[in-house]
Design a protein around this nucleic acid. Sequence first.
DNA 1: CGTGAGATTGACTGTACTCAAATGTGGTGG
DNA 2: CCACCACATTTGAGTACAGTCAATCTCACG
Lengths: 228, 228
Amino acid sequence: MATPMTRPFPSFEPVNPPVHGGREVALFAGCPELLGTPFSYGREEEIYGEGEDADVVYRVVDGAVRTHKVLGDGRRQITGFHLPGDLFGFEQGEAHRHSAEALSDTKVLIFRRSAIQRAAARNADVACHLWNMATRGLRHAQDHMLLLGRRSAVERVATFLIDVDERLGGTGTFALPMTRRDIADYLGLTIETVSRTLSQLEEAGTLLRTGGRQVSLRLQRLRRVVED
Amino acid sequence: MATPMTRPFPSFEPVNPPVHGGREVALFAGCPELLGTPFSYGREEEIYGEGEDADVVYRVVDGAVRTHKVLGDGRRQITGFHLPGDLFGFEQGEAHRHSAEALSDTKVLIFRRSAIQRAAARNADVACHLWNMATRGLRHAQDHMLLLGRRSAVERVATFLIDVDERLGGTGTFALPMTRRDIADYLGLTIETVSRTLSQLEEAGTLLRTGGRQVSLRLQRLRRVVED
DNA sequence: CGTGAGATTGACTGTACTCAAATGTGGTGG
DNA sequence: CCACCACATTTGAGTACAGTCAATCTCACG
């Protein structure tokens, strides 16, 4: 476990960009009083489930997390993938209305909601930051609603690949950190459709697959597929 | 225009329940320093568009508002309908990433973002309330993602009807305040599918249509359609 | 080298979409 | 009050895109 220390972010605004291997334990820059407790989860381990008490908020330090909702018959919608730097676990009421699991071995920082609220009351910057965090999430949700409601399978997959690439550094070459099932449940498709669509994109020379999860994107062409 | 006055809400938590004809101008209870400016919009009038400066936040006083995103080719996804009491117009950055229009003649209160942030810094309750507001929006967005990604047409329409009914008083009988196009663009369907689905539900004795927008729901049966 | 989970591919099906026509509704002015 | 109009909604016929079911392939790991 990393020893608690206060290394603030260089800039105020971008909390999102990955901070692989970071050892920050403060929730926000310039807020040394709001410290998080390091914690680890194994691959596929549940972080919290629907209905559980929502008295803490998490920040990913290393690894990746998915949050999702399920229907009674098992249909699942993944609402987001959370990479290093991302916050997740906000909840309006007492209990979680969705679940969270680690995609791979994952390190997080845990912050008590009560402590956050106390800090927000004392420090205007913290309050502002929280507001930004939440509206950032709202924006992502709105984008994703547009994708789920109005985009075709190819567009969904292309959008997804571009997005993951950006969040992983933007080199165009990376290993997808999740299974086809997770991708399908995020995009509102089936694994078969995701698979077929990837094959179709590869056939069109829009990407290259080398081994199971590894992909190389032709970003130009991929962006032309999305066209928004 | 209503004269500014400070009538705080009786309770702290529920800002959402409709306050038809309310004349409150304070954003939150117990926050007389944060006053809004009353403003009106006509039917179908644009409140703000994508790309415009997002320096204010709105609260619906009377009427109804829709917020949406569009793709280049015109495909549209409505991300939410906002009824009296609801806040909308939050944005993470400088500019709006979506648009908002009045469904019918609508009265709103306008609050400057800078004023809100100043108030949040001074008043812990306000900061807490803002946090709640934003996470409330996030929860709705997550529910809607599940609907868009994983639910069938009948389930979407049924869910929608139940939801509108609840927000309009829960009597089971009401006039839909929006067109089929709006419903379709909210549910990720086409107007034809919405229409057919309503006919199908009526045929099954799950609801009654009297005149264009007027409906009477058999809530029991309708809930059985949704089953979650 | 065998095993099993994950991924791909194939054949077929079904739900929701598209295009098109008919019907209903509310508003306006004679 | 009614005729007329524009527009919203419903209904119909045919299609297509993504889903289902099932077989095969790949690859990491013991």
